[in-house]
């Protein structure tokens, strides 16, 4: 539901974690091709988990479809964003440094601290143009399950 309130457009969306919330139209990120396996979901918004680097990539149309994501810089010492030119162009830039790079996190029910990050299929977002895409890393070393706490330990040197 899109409603005009004052100068900006506000939309009420139902979220998995936070119930019904209002977001500004400018907070909607378009994913023209959806995500792998979820090609019909074209609009998402980012919701920050309070006091945490963890965030939700919440579908604007399906309340149950929300992914926990992390910025790769928040848990990795380094991440080599090696992706195709067409992936870059599809989010409206030729400069990878303009992008925010996220990994989708899978959290096992029984043992949440074994959570893993999908580095093979990172999510790139051009915040300026509000355009996102899940891409395929061209770097062989990145798989779909990297233990987040191992990466975090390598990053902090603990």
């Amino acid at each position: 539901m899109l409603e005009k309130r004052g100068a900006s457009l506000t939309m009420t969306i139902n979220t998995k974690q936070f119930g019904s919330i209002d977001i500004d139209e400018s907070e909607i990120i378009s994913f023209p091709d959806g995500l792998f396996g979820f090609e019909s979901l074209k609009k998402f918004t980012l919701i920050e988990e309070p006091d945490s680097p963890m965030m939700w990539l919440q579908s604007c149309s399906e309340s149950d479809l929300a992914f926990v994501i992390l910025r790769v810089v928040d848990f990795m010492k380094e991440y080599d964003l090696s992706i195709s030119q067409s992936d870059l162009e599809s989010v409206g830039t030729e400069d990878p440094s303009e992008l925010d790079v996220f990994a989708i996190v899978t959290i096992p029910l029984e043992n949440p601290s074994e959570m893993t990050a999908n580095l093979m299929g990172p999510v790139i977002i051009n915040m300026k143009d509000k355009k996102g895409r899940q891409v395929i890393s061209l770097c062989d070393k990145y798989k779909t399950k990297h233990r987040v706490l191992d990466e975090l330990q390598a990053k902090t040197g603990a």
Binding site: F36, G37, D64, L65, F67, V68, N118, M120
Partner: peptide, 16 residues
């Protein structure tokens, strides 16, 4: 493609 798709499904399937 299939691997990333499966992982996406796994990521939203856990009712933690």
């Amino acid at each position: 493609f299939d691997e990333i798709k499966q992982e996406n499904i796994a990521a939203i399937s856990t009712p933690f």
